[in-house]
Simulated scan of single mutants.
Amino acid sequence: MDIAGVREIFNERLIDLDMKSVNKREAIEELTDSLYKEGHIIDCKAFVDDVYLRENEGQTGIGNHIAIPHGKSDAVKITSIAFGRTKNDLAWESPDDEPVHVVILFAVRNVDKTTVHLKLLSQVAMALADDATLDKLLKTNDKTEIIRLLSQEMN
């Protein structure tokens, strides 16, 4: 696989703007379920276990109501990203101790875990460093806009 950008591994079917989750585990499982339905992962339990292995290494809440959990796993068939937003306050370890409302779940094939994973993470992190982008992600109901916001290449 060549090093794809966010736009290549992200689609509207992997965006849920009305998640029902009321806690971190439910949020991860809800987004994992959408990845499974799309055929991007082959084993939900194995993938969630791998996400939690990573969660145990350090916080994935980045502040500003956003968390970026990720799992590198043999259960991942296609490296992809699922985006979820909820009105519920999700308790999540993050630097500002604020509840999370946006969860961006990375599902990374083990063979992609170095280059692809880091490129995608840095692309999303750069997009999230912009306050206007953050604000739009928390408010927009346009899935195409979310893909555009997270996949903008920074100059």
Rank of each mutant, 00 (worst) to 15 (best):
S80A: 11
I104F: 01
M126G: 10
S73C: 07
A125N: 14
R109E: 04
D18V: 13
F106P: 02
L17G: 04
L118Y: 13
K77H: 12
F83S: 04
D49F: 08
D97K: 07
R25F: 08
L14E: 02
H70W: 02
D130P: 09
D89A: 14
N11S: 09
N56T: 08
E26R: 06
D49A: 14
G71S: 09
N23Y: 12
K136G: 10
L121A: 15
M154Q: 09
R54H: 06
V111R: 10
I146K: 01
G71R: 03
D74P: 05
A129S: 10
R7V: 06
E93L: 01
E153N: 15
L118H: 10
D74S: 09
A82R: 01
D135F: 12
I28R: 01
K45P: 07
R13P: 14
E38W: 04
G39C: 10
C44D: 08
I81R: 00
M154E: 08
A75H: 02
R7N: 10
S34D: 05
R54T: 11
E57M: 06
S34P: 00
G58S: 10
I3A: 06
K87E: 08
I42P: 01
D43R: 05
V48S: 03
T144R: 07
K136P: 03
K72H: 07
H65Y: 15
I9E: 00
K119R: 10
G84D: 04
L149A: 04
A107G: 05
L121Q: 15
D74C: 12
E12Y: 11
R85G: 02
S122C: 12
M19Y: 14
T115D: 11
E57R: 12
L90G: 00
L120F: 14
D96R: 14
A27Y: 03
K20C: 10
D50Y: 04
D96T: 09
R109L: 06
Q123S: 15
L90Q: 04
S151M: 05
H70E: 11
V100D: 02
I68Q: 05
D49G: 02
E145A: 15
L118N: 09
T133C: 14
E93H: 05
E38K: 07
A82N: 00
A46I: 00
S94W: 06
